[in-house]
């Protein structure tokens, strides 16, 4: 490991200051420390935010929930309110990693974990994300786990989080303490950038910007589901995952909040898919049409081609499950 400075932040603004010039936040460290050992990430200064007061889960005035950035994945998954009103989030969390990792992993860190692209982790390989301009080793390499949507010629990495996919479907917002001093709220969808020709830039955050919380809007009517497809029964990242909140009223789809994991560089939400479903009676043909829209621009790269038909099957199964019975 490269030598680095260590700063234990005492308050959000102190953290922001310390990180603004060459510092990197460390929360649970479950992703960052691995990357530091490999020197894929080599921060000059670690700013330890774990002593900050960001471990609370509080109800917001309008029936939503404010989740502190340091709330562990375990605590969030087991929160009684989350389990009752936002079960898709609880299930997504519990489908991720292992109990030990979830105990350590934080809400903020989970949102900002880096891709699992194997070429990103291997410094002998070209990778535009790790070393801009060096090329993309995965494009014509072993890319089984990588993306089919939202990619560019420069990078086909996926965002690996399960939690973020559920939050995306729930319409969550992130609260950010900007390095400049003000606090902002941003739809989660707007946090992430697509790779384009700058895959090294993954979010809109500037150095020193600290995620302080995630805000869930009030629960909505409908059934929820998180379905994760992976290479083994547990402890594997999603090949395809779907987070869904679906309601049927009067035999027609009244709500279809859908987000997808394993397919794209960010938790993927496609409003056109949802629009196509709304107001329609649920049917296999309708679900197929939704999948057509979702996957219209999907592009495989060889080893990950299978994700396209798989996403179609899983989407259809999830929609069937959530509309069954209600349609009658």
């Amino acid at each position: 490991m490269r030598p680095f400075d260590y700063h234990r932040a005492t308050a959000p603004d102190d953290a922001a200051r310390a990180a603004a010039s060459g510092g990197t936040f460390i929360a649970g460290g479950t992703n960052l420390v691995d990357l530091m050992k490999l020197e894929v990430m080599a921060p000059e200064r670690l700013v330890d935010i774990t002593r900050l007061d960001m471990r609370g889960i509080e109800e917001t005035g309008d029936g939503g929930l404010r989740i502190g950035a340091l709330v562990s994945n375990t605590d969030l998954a087991n929160d009684a309110r989350v389990r009752r009103d936002w079960p898709v989030l609880s299930r997504a969390l519990l489908s991720g990693a292992t109990q030990q990792l979830r105990n350590k992993a934080t809400t903020g860190g989970n949102l900002l974990q880096r891709t699992r692209c194997l070429y990103f982790y291997d410094r002998a390989m070209p990778c535009n994300k790790r070393e801009p301009g060096s090329g993309c080793g995965a494009m014509e390499g072993f890319n089984r786990i990588l993306a089919v949507l939202g990619t560019s010629d420069h990078c086909i990495a996926t965002h690996p989080s399960d939690m973020a996919v559920a939050m995306m479907a729930l319409g969550a917002e992130v609260e950010i303490a900007r390095a400049g001093g003000n606090t902002e709220r941003l739809p989660l969808d707007d946090l992430y950038l697509l790779p384009g020709d700058t895959p090294e830039r993954e979010t809109v955050l500037a150095p020193g910007d600290l995620i302080t919380a995630v805000i869930l809007p009030a629960p909505v009517a409908g059934r929820q589901s998180y379905r994760k497809v992976r290479d083994r029964a547990s402890y594997a990242f999603a090949l395809v995952s779907v987070a869904a909140v679906v309601a049927v009223e009067d035999g027609k789809v009244a709500r279809a909040d859908l987000a997808f994991g394993g397919l794209a560089p960010k938790p993927w939400r496609d409003k056109d898919v949802e629009a196509a479903l709304l107001g329609q009676p649920p049917s296999e043909a309708l679900f197929d049409k939704a999948a057509d829209i979702l996957l219209a621009k999907a592009q495989g790269h060889g080893a990950n081609d299978f994700k396209i038909p798989l996403a179609r099957r899983v989407l259809s199964a999830v929609l069937t499950e959530l509309t069954e019975g209600a349609a009658a």
Partner: peptide
Amino acid sequence: HVANHNLAEYHIPVNAD
């Protein structure tokens, strides 16, 4: 070269399997 040279991507069975 071995692309999946870690236990996260070289999938040995876990308890659930």
